[in-house]
Design a binder for these strands. Structure first.
Lengths: 112, 112
DNA sequence: GTTTTATGACGTATTTTTACGTCCTAAAGC
DNA sequence: GCTTTAGGACGTAAAAATACGTCATAAAAC
């Protein structure tokens, strides 16, 4: 029984957790940062920027693509990967919403 | 090989990724939300709130404790877990900083 | 037309995460 | 005293994430 229990939680928590997960690896953060800075690029370029093999970078790219944060369009042999502005916006919205739910009261009655 | 390559990335990306990872499971989000709402509680209470066994919840609590987001203080047999306001604040700061680095330009030159 | 280059697809090893069950301990109740 | 209750410690099994290497393919370069 070590099945995924993720779906037993509230819908919005699942969604937020999914986005957090997508950002839970420095390689993926580096990719997003790189794409945001350079606007458009190919995945080969990206693997040169990272201390990981091309195949591993590709896997991270695929993951970001699955969450919808990036898009890749075929251009002959090369693939242009770039950010999906709509999804990035949604991501920010959802993560922001969650973080607001853990707003802290002025004084927190917890002994140290 | 398959060793952790996380430490090969920029310090700030590592840190951000670590926080994102801490939030990458709905159970942990639910715990944080619950703690934020109820101010103080014991871990037994929490496992009643979640669709997971006590031991599993305990593991998630331990993970949140390792990242410093929550604190647990011994009170006889019972343990009061609560948010660590300082760390939560840091988390928001760091995640916000990262998200700002992926700010999007007005028009993004990517064909669909 | 052959070689190079870029990239996806596939397979696989290792590590980490997720999820429990069981046992142990120590206070609280009876 | 004995029993219940609460929770930590430990072990383990299954799944997912991480990291590569190798192969296949198709355009580009020569």
């Amino acid at each position: 029984m070590t099945s995924a229990k993720v779906e037993l939680f509230e819908e919005n928590l699942q969604q937020a957790a999914g986005y957090f997960k997508a950002l839970a690896h420095p390689a993926r953060l580096a990719i997003l940062k790189y794409l945001a800075e350079s606007k458009v690029c190919i995945s080969g370029d990206i693997s040169n920027e990272l201390p990981l093999s091309r195949t591993t970078v590709n896997q991270h790219l695929k993951e970001l693509k699955n969450t919808g944060l990036i898009k890749g369009s075929i251009d002959g042999v090369k693939v242009n990967y770039c950010l999906n502005p709509a999804k990035v916006k949604e991501l920010k919205q959802i993560l922001g919403d969650f973080l607001n739910t853990v707003e802290l009261p002025e004084k927190f009655n917890c002994r140290d």
